[in-house]
Nucleic acid binder design. Structure first.
Length: 239
DNA sequence: GCGACAG
DNA sequence: ATCTTGTCGC
């Protein structure tokens, strides 16, 4: 088939050209508001495009981690690792000035513009995006991972170090998990990736279900709390 | 109303 | 996110 990147369904090429090149970074569907009110409106408009099911035959060979480091400017880094060996196979960075203030719930507007430009620089098309933050585990069900997935058309999931919703402590062993809820709705999982270590918070971004996302995160974190994708991207962003 | 709040 | 020493453990 063809999961070559941009412009999945929905179809309203409301800003910029329609994707035809297979590049990750097409302008399709992108707009970067300048105010919080506009940003929330963008989230409300795009949230309906999220697909929380894993496409049949989804067998990624690589996973791509996204992270942003804050200094004078923002440094976005993306790192693709082989899911078999967890070795780095591709990476890119991009830096630029702060373009949106930090507002919990409006994260994507701060980090995504640079992250998308970094994704454009990759040699190999990403198969699944592992975002540093939440996906559906978000007050409007449209966190960074959903936004990244919808704008690129690439399967995406969120792995947060902290949660926005409510959860009970999962069991103490690697692989144990408990439901992460918000307003009584299950929006993700508190997942223990290492024995007796604080859990991470996994949620669906786009084109993956919660079980698949959980499996991927466990695969990516055989030894450390955070997935290798995140660790590699974090390392690259601060170098 | 007030506080808390992904990175 | 970032400001920051030492310390315990594999």
């Amino acid at each position: 088939m063809d999961n070559s990147g941009v412009g999945d369904s929905g179809g309203v090429g409301d800003s910029g050209r329609v994707g035809d090149s297979g590049r990750v970074g097409d302008d399709f569907g992108r707009d970067w508001p300048g105010t919080e009110v506009e940003a929330i409106a963008v989230q409300e408009r795009l949230r309906g495009r999220v697909r929380a099911a894993t496409p049949a035959g989804f067998r990624p060979r690589t996973a791509t981690g996204l992270d942003v480091h804050y200094t004078d400017v923002l440094v976005a880094a993306v790192c693709t690792v082989d899911l078999e060996t967890l070795e780095l196979v591709d990476s890119a960075t991009c830096q630029g000035p702060e373009s949106f203030p930090y507002v919990p719930g409006l994260f994507a507007f701060r980090e995504l513009p640079l992250l998308l430009r970094a994704l454009d620089k990759l040699t190999t098309p990403p198969e699944v995006l592992v975002c540093d933050g939440q996906g559906l585990a978000h007050p409007r069900r449209f966190g960074l991972a959903c936004h990244a997935g919808v704008l690129t058309g690439i399967p995406a999931l969120g792995v947060g170090k902290n949660a926005l919703g409510d959860f009970e402590q999962p069991g103490p062993r690697r692989g144990d998990w408990s439901a992460l809820t918000d307003g009584g709705e299950v929006v993700g999982r508190a997942l223990r990736t290492q024995d007796n270590v604080k859990p991470v918070f996994v949620s669906v971004g786009h084109l993956v279900d919660l079980d698949t996302a959980t499996d991927l995160v466990l695969t990516l974190a055989p030894r450390y709390r955070l997935p290798e994708t995140t660790r590699q991207a974090d390392h690259l962003a601060r170098s």
